[in-house]
């Protein structure tokens, strides 16, 4: 068993778009150790989202190898992939990604419920996750009754409540103002530093990039730069 959370070798991904093949990834090598905080950046079409999706088990590579937490993803069925996402990965998407008819607490609880966690444990863990993000007072509100930043924090609570091995955030700041983005990123950094949460973000936003400790820059489906940031 390697200590690596993500190990990718020679990933290629080609989309067929209206008879023109689009090479989203052209042989990407990428690996990630536990407790790293990485930002994937690059212009539109650089392949950062594709890489994030393949790492998250939402998309499949055409060639190459991808292992998550020591497990190769290629042979897994759709059902196995879904189970794997449920157990090992926490997702944070752009805003509006909570179930609108469920309260904050219920949204967080729901993911534990999908995992089959019992009722008492579920409530306790969901409550703690919200508390750790300073959301205890909002736990009975529904998404429509919260601000964008609050919603995004609930989404993070939902992502971390399962103790995933990897947290993926796809353009987490897309619908947030800079003040809220800052708060959000502080939160992610805090998670990374205090709990050792492994985090990957994919973003255009320099502010988001700035919080990561390692920056991987993609261009035209290949890794252009991969550098560790030292403060």
């Amino acid at each position: 068993m390697s200590g690596e959370v993500v190990m990718a070798r020679g990933l290629t991904r080609v989309y067929q778009e209206e008879a023109v093949p689009v090479h989203a990834l052209r042989g990407v090598d990428f690996s990630l150790s536990s407790s790293e905080f990485v930002s994937l950046s690059g212009p539109s079409g650089s392949g950062k989202s594709t890489l994030l999706n393949i790492v998250g088990g939402l998309d499949r590579q055409d060639e190459g190898i991808i292992e998550l937490d020591g497990e190769e993803l290629a042979p897994l069925s759709e059902g196995d992939l879904a189970a794997l996402r449920l157990r090992k990965i926490g997702f944070v998407f752009q805003a509006y990604n909570l179930v609108p008819v469920l309260s904050a607490l219920e949204n967080v609880e729901f993911i534990l419920q999908l995992q089959g966690v019992g009722s008492a444990e579920r409530k306790e863990r969901a409550g703690e996750a919200l508390k750790s993000l300073g959301l205890s007072e909002l736990q009975d509100r529904r998404p429509g009754e919260m601000s964008g930043g609050q919603q995004q924090r609930v989404a993070i609570a939902r992502a971390i409540v399962t103790n995933p091995v990897l947290l993926l955030a796809d353009e987490p700041s897309a619908n947030l103002d800079s003040e809220t983005t800052k708060e959000l990123m502080e939160l992610l950094r805090n998670l990374n530093e205090t709990q050792g949460m492994t985090i990957i973000t994919a973003t255009h936003d320099p502010m988001v990039m700035g919080y990561a400790k390692r920056q991987v820059h993609l261009r035209d489906g290949t890794v252009e730069r991969d550098e560790v940031v030292t403060d």
Partner: peptide
């Protein structure tokens, strides 16, 4: 559609 996409991504079947 969006809501369902998120739920599916989170691992809902």
């Amino acid at each position: 559609t969006n809501e369902m996409g998120v739920l599916l991504a989170l691992g809902m079947r």
